[in-house]
Nucleic acid binder design. Structure first.
Lengths: 367, 367
DNA sequence: TTGTATGCGTTATCAT
DNA sequence: ATGATAACGCATACAA
């Protein structure tokens, strides 16, 4: 409760010097076991925690990790954050959350964050068009990991899923239920993941020997509203032109489809089967519950933050080593370690979650 | 892009001293307009941002605000966070997120956070049993604001809703639809808000001249599973013992009720009307969509962070003043300003959102 | 109004 | 193995 103890006070109380206390705090092995015991006891007793600001200044090193995230009201962001937070609880790192809207210029925000030199590394969630800017910083040696929905290979450490495989699986599920006329509502094509989901769909059809039917493709924007639009268009056709199933590129749009179906009295999955992608938290609770491809968001967060912290620690060690043995080689500091030439890629597996909206070959009631 | 500029560099480049640059950065009025111009130009040109750690050390003041939050996967937490983040974007404060699970001892975590002396203030979301500990810290002068679901008056600055009024409104809505046998699924009674929701229900019945029927009360735990349990119990009764409506203490439990109704082929709202509390994001998208009491979570976050920042700034000014004029009065620093004797209370209004699950007077079942 | 000098709490580099 | 001491980057009291 003693409000403002410093390392100096602890040193005095333990009858040692500041330096020794510091060494104890940093688990420096070169300190006598007995002394360590004594010092640690004092630290515990007074509940002493060294000032992060001072550590930052002196060591040139912060225990803070920046997390650059889209608005938390986006469906899957909270789950990712949860994975991150859970992992961080077991470390002595803290998270500085930058939840950015989309009105301001991202690049400015990013520069500002990095120039403050407050965070030791950055975890960027769905960076979108910010990727290039991030890559640049990464090249300069700043620890960085991205969680991205677009698995287009990049120069950045990356955690994500195998989107195409997921989409393939979703489509194949419908094929296995006996469907042959399967529509697809696409996501916006400037998202690479939307392209990949479409490709997975195409591949599955092709492997089943079914020709792609352009009349069964609808262009959406990943929003429930666009799902409603596409569904409305589809259901206004002659009945014989309907597909028997739809693979929707994300759950949000699938919600729109289910909504329209409900309004028009079209029963799902009896008249039309629906499969989504993402497994947002809503999807299990909808009526009918939505069959979809589950992305392990929480796990992605965990993997990403773990990789980032390793990268930070390693980075730190390297700089320590370099300072010792190298004469000022000057010039811009550019990475040459394996990390850059072959950046991290972690692909976590997706899973098909079969629920009511896709029915079953025998159309059993929900169990 | 120049990686590591300091205030010293800027001073040299502008042909002034460090002190002047510092004054410019801190908007100190006592600096010549021309000089200010020159310095600011250099700052802009080099995109200089002073090191937060150094500022923290030197000024004893941080631009960081701690946010203590339950897991982000809790329904309403992301919305609150969104409000906070949005407000912070327009300030020069950053948020350090402590998303705590519920296995570890909260008090320890809190002490640790505060002892680090990293954050200038703390915003505690749904602190629960941590309140006492927080109050203690607040008494000692640490800037603190809570967003709480339990409006039991406390010694802490508080942002929340008028729970009882909301519950009253929900129940009255059902009464106005003509319902007379209205059940209530209670939340766990160690949450004060659960008690208040129950009280609002009772009050509304009483004002309508309807006696409380203990057979229509069910004890839940705020989880969808407990909603299912209660609903199962209820629907297993003789048909004539059913209520015609249920006021469920939160949306999550209402989801469980709707689920069971769907499974048992009981139509909502025709056979039984359902009203929830919270207006989580799911509620609008369920079939049937859920009538509920909307809590303006995002607004609550905004109000809370605004109050906290004001408190921090004011606190800082006070300390500045005190250091100038007072001789060391010594002893523990205890607040005596109005803030403590009469702590902040902001009550944001709730709103009844009428959706499908409560139906309309015409669809009122007979009996 | 501006520059100089000191201190913030810690790490790291020296000595010992 | 341990202790003194010099940075770290900035704010601020003080001198000019």
């Amino acid at each position: 409760m003693h409000s403002t103890l410093t390392i100096q006070d602890i040193a005095r109380l333990a009858g040692v010097s500041k330096a020794t206390v510091s060494r104890v705090l940093n688990h420096n092995p070169s300190v006598n076991a007995l002394l360590r015991e004594r010092v640690q006891h004092v630290i515990q007793e007074y509940d002493f925690v060294p000032s992060v600001t001072a550590i930052g200044l002196a060591g040139g090193r912060t225990r803070l990790i920046g997390v650059l995230a889209p608005p938390l009201t986006w469906p899957s962001v909270p789950e990712i954050m949860h994975g991150i937070a859970e992992y961080l609880e077991c470390t002595d790192y803290e998270m500085v959350l930058y939840s950015i809207g989309f009105e301001r210029n991202h690049s400015d925000v990013l520069d500002h964050i990095l120039n403050m030199k407050m965070v030791a590394g950055l975890l960027a969630i769905f960076p979108g068009e910010l990727s290039n800017h991030l890559a640049q910083r990464f090249q300069q040696g700043f620890p960085l990991v991205t969680i991205d929905d677009q698995s287009k290979p990049s120069a950045l450490p990356w955690v994500g899923i195998n989107t195409m495989t997921g989409a393939y699986e979703a489509t194949r599920h419908l094929l296995e239920l006996g469907h042959r006329r399967i529509a697809h509502i696409l996501g916006p094509q400037h998202y690479y993941c939307a392209v990949e989901r479409y490709q997975g769909y195409c591949q599955a059809l092709q492997d089943a020997g079914i020709a792609l039917n352009p009349n069964l493709l609808f262009q959406g924007t990943f929003t429930p509203a666009s799902g409603r639009q596409c569904a409305t268009m589809l259901f206004s056709r002659e009945r014989q032109d309907w597909p028997t199933a739809i693979f929707v590129a994300n759950d949000q749009m699938a919600y729109g489809v289910l909504e329209v179906a409900e309004q028009q009295g079209i029963s799902v999955p009896e008249e039309i089967a629906v499969v989504g992608f993402d497994d947002n938290m809503l999807s299990a609770h909808l009526r009918p519950s939505l069959t979809t491809i589950q992305q392990p968001f929480s796990e992605m967060g965990r993997q990403a933050i773990e990789a980032l912290i390793m990268s930070i620690d390693q980075n730190h060690s390297m700089e320590q080593g370099r300072l010792k043995q190298s004469t000022q080689s000057g010039s811009e500091h550019v990475r040459e370690d394996p990390q850059t030439t072959n950046p991290l890629r972690i692909q976590v597996p997706t899973r098909l979650i079969v629920r009511a909206s896709s029915g079953s070959p025998r159309t059993l009631p929900i169990g």
